[in-house]
Design a binder for these strands. Structure first.
Lengths: 207, 207
DNA sequence: GTCTATATAAGGATAGAC
DNA sequence: GTCTATCCTTATATAGAC
């Protein structure tokens, strides 16, 4: 029994799609590539997901439901233990994604898929993400704003915008750091995350 | 004689491609969409550019040759008049792109195309950009590093990386700010650029 | 739930008339 | 330099056997 046999057809498709979307984008990946990579039949995608657009949505849902919960729960913990502190809030956003990108089972590809989605101007995809996960960004924005009194509304809006871009793309790069299985890569990523938190906090404060 | 008639077939194709690439991505845009949008014949792309890949490269070359020169020349001017100052270096990078995105003739779409390229992991495209324009980023990196003595090599590398991501995506958003033709949008963009410079400088210093 | 086969459309690229 | 027509490949999606 091979390693991949442990996963259902549906999970194999999701994993293959995630990997290929990260590498070639949504439009740049064909369902034939996906099924070939997943070693399933071409018809399987339509049987399990109905359409390519639905498959894209499910690739996000599979990870984002859990990731969003982890982020919000870490945010609440940070606000409880260190109220008014900026860095713990940023850590609450970054560290669950970092854990995902260090994970086996293709989690690292997903962080890059997220970065793709950020660049993507596709209306339907943006609406899907905004409708289902927009509340996470709003919670974090509110929490960060509360740490930064005395900054004008317009200025604050921009800093949050810049931060979102910086975090998204920086984390996508974390997913590219080669994981040779050693603990040193994990430590390397952790140092990168620390640097990112420091960078974003300084930028937000506008020191 | 209509407004578009002033431009050659080649220029019309480049303009249409730029607009569509910004909106749908490279893989997500078909040559048929491009030629329809440019109001030229389907065969014109292959006649003038040989292939889709070549068209993509020319879309970059048309703007990036000039933009790179402007950036490097602004960098030299900044280093001459305010040596060791960080903000003028960042301004030298940002303001030529801002001017482009405020320009008529589709310059705003190009800034978003640049952001697309940043997310794109396509090897051939990355190599083309790195071979032809990589020296610009290296010049700026060197200049910024010189302003930040006493920061470790690894830490500095990350901060430059975060900055590149933040700048690229923030500038793409500038290109989305609606320009109703008034001067107020120009002022709005200028304030956004000032905020971006401040944000990046603070992040780089790690205050 | 999984396969083969296929319907139907769209894609990139080219040949050859004008 | 520009057009029409077309070749060939690839794509998404589905129908129907197993």
């Amino acid at each position: 029994m091979s390693a991949t046999t442990h996963f259902s057809t549906k999970q194999r498709i999701l994993g293959a799609a995630e990997e290929l979307f990260a590498q070639f984008g949504f439009a740049g990946t064909s369902l034939r590539q996906v099924t070939a990579h997943a070693e399933v039949n071409v018809a399987a995608v339509n049987y399990h997901f109905g359409s390519k657009e639905n498959l894209v949505a499910e690739v996000f849902r599979r990870r984002l439901d859990e990731l969003s919960e982890q982020r919000l729960s870490a945010l609440r913990a940070a606000q409880a233990s260190q109220p008014g502190a900026l860095e713990p809030i940023l850590a609450a956003f970054i560290e669950p994604a970092l854990a995902l990108s260090m994970d086996r089972h293709g989690g690292s590809a997903f962080v890059r898929v997220l970065a793709r989605a950020y660049a993507e101007k596709n209306e339907r995809l943006r609406k899907f993400l905004s409708d289902n996960y927009g509340h996470v960004m709003r919670e974090f924005s509110k929490a960060i704003a509360a740490c930064l009194p005395g900054i004008g509304k317009e200025e604050l809006h921009w800093r949050l915008d810049f931060t979102a871009g910086a975090l998204t793309y920086a984390m996508a790069d974390f997913g590219l750091i080669r994981r040779h299985g050693g603990a040193s890569e994990k430590a390397h990523c952790q140092r990168a995350a620390t640097a990112l938190i420091r960078f974003a906090a300084a930028g937000l404060r506008g020191a």
